[in-house]
Structure formats: structure tokens, C-alpha cells
Amino acid sequence: MISREWTVNAALALALLAAAIAAEAAGQVFYITLATRIAILGLAATGLNLALGLGGLVSFGHAVFFGIGGYAAGILGSHAFSGDPMIFGLEGSNSMPLIWLVAALAAAVAGVVIGVISIRTSGVYFIMITLAFAQMLYYFAISWPAYGGEDGLSIFVRNAFPGMNTMKPLSFFLISFGALMAGIAILAVLRGSRFGSALDVVRQNEVRAAAVGINPFPVKLTAFVLSAMITAVAGALYADLNRFVSPSMMSWHMSGELIVLIILGGTGRLFGPMAGAALFVLIEHNLGELTERWQFFLGLILLVTVLFARGGVLGFLAGKVRHG
């Protein structure tokens, strides 16, 4: 039997795909870009959803992983473009799969360091430590002149994906959409696994998890690191979308935005981040045309969501979560 949630999920995914294809048919490149933005932000928030939604780890520094991904794309791509070797004489690369791998591994290293320190704390301390780490790396990026410092780093030609012309908007959308679906699939598999069960019980009741012999720390750390890796891949895509990466990708605004996407869409729901990203981008686009103060209205919508519709878009469309 197909549940209501999966019907909604499939409808959301198909709607995004259809919107991009329709925009291509109508020659409206701008709308393809909007759809691509939804897919990429959705993927970044899907990564965070693993830590925040499934693991209850409210990371207020996930932009740092998004930025690490962005810089992986920017740095590798610019070296490949110029032909100059990087440190240790390594060559740059403009191959997206390789860039994603580097982005994910770099984020994993950062995730372990940040996680080992921050996960010992909880609540507001956890939020503050993750924020502090993100701000440290943000200021580091600003003061790093080799890669543009405050001005950021331009990517002259989008990095390449085997068999696709990434400069074609629809092709790049399809890559991003595929990555989003893969990210959601990873989350679905993890959630159903033994690891997912352990993570869920750690979120619900940490004392209890320990009492049955599940040590919460390594479970949370693993979730945090995997979450960072997914968000980093989204960051690499985001840099390619804009053909530009700057420290602002790591700013706390971005971290906050990722949390907002999850809350709008439905915390812990597989398609919540994507729904939240769609809502966010549509609000930004439509209200942004009407008023410069669109973020005021975004705030109102967020307030209404938190007060009256805790489940976000997914909770509204697909009803409450049923645990087995």
C-alpha cells in the first residue's frame, strides 16, 4: 500500500521536475535556475535534516559545510582552469564527481573536529559551539587572499559532469535534481536501518539509549559527519550554479536559512527540506518582486508555521508521522 506521505512526496518531486521541463519548453531559463536553486538548497537542508531532524542535533553552523563544498568546487575548478598546481603540487580538477568526493571528505574531516567538541554538549551550548566554529571558518575564508578573500572566487566555466553539458540550464538542473533524490534516498535508507533506529532513540531519550547499551556519542557523531558530507555536496553544486563562491556561503545567515527550510518543510520528514526549499525560493522570488522587505513576510510565515503548523508543509499535506 502506498501511504499518503509517499503520494505527497512523489507529487512534490514530479512537480519540481515538471516545472523545470516546462520552463525549458517555454524558453524561460530563469525559472529553470529557480528550480535548480530549490533542488540544491533542498539537498543542503536534507543533509542538515539527518542531524537536526533525525538526530535532534540543532546545528547552527551547517553553512560551514555548505561553504567547504563551495570552496572545493571553486578551488579545484580554478586550478583546473588556470593549470597552476595546488599545494603539494596536486592538480586541479573540473570533474564534478571528483569535486563532490573532495567536498564530502573535507566536510567529513571538519565534521569530525567540530562534532567531537560540540556533541559533548547539548541544547543552547551545542547551538553556540557549532555557530562559533562556523564563524571561525567564515572569517578564515574572508582573510584568505589566495582564493579571493572577502570578494569571493569566480568559477569561469561550470565544472563538468561526464556525458552532460553543465552549461545547459536543464542539464545542470537534472544533475542537481538527481543529487537531491540521491540524498533523500540515502536518508530514507539510513532512517530505516539499525543505525537510524539507534539515532532516533538517542534523539527521543538519550538516557534510555545508554540504558539499553547504545552509547549516544558515536551515534550522534556519525550522524553529524554524514550530515556534513551531504550538505557539502550541495555546496559544491551551489557554487557551480552561481559560478561563484564567497565567504557568505559560510555565514550564519546561511546556517539559519538551512534551519528555516527544514522547519518550513517539516522537521525529520524525508521530503520536508525540499518542500521547505521550494516554499522559501518561491516566497523570496514572488515577494521579493513586490517588496524589499520580503524577509519580514518570511518571518511571519515562519511564525505561523511554528505556532500553528508544527509539521510544516509535509505535516499539512501528508498528516502526522506514524512510527511503526
Binding site: V189, L190, S193, S197, V212, I214, V219
Partner: peptide, 13 residues
């Protein structure tokens, strides 16, 4: 979950 913990296998993904 208790059975899982007893089997010592929470890191199966």
C-alpha cells in the same frame, strides 16, 4: 532496539 543493542550492531546502515 534492546535486541539490536545486545547484538552490538547499531552501526549497520
Amino acid at each position: 532496539l534492546a535486541v539490536q543493542a545486545r547484538q552490538g550492531s547499531s552501526f549497520r546502515f
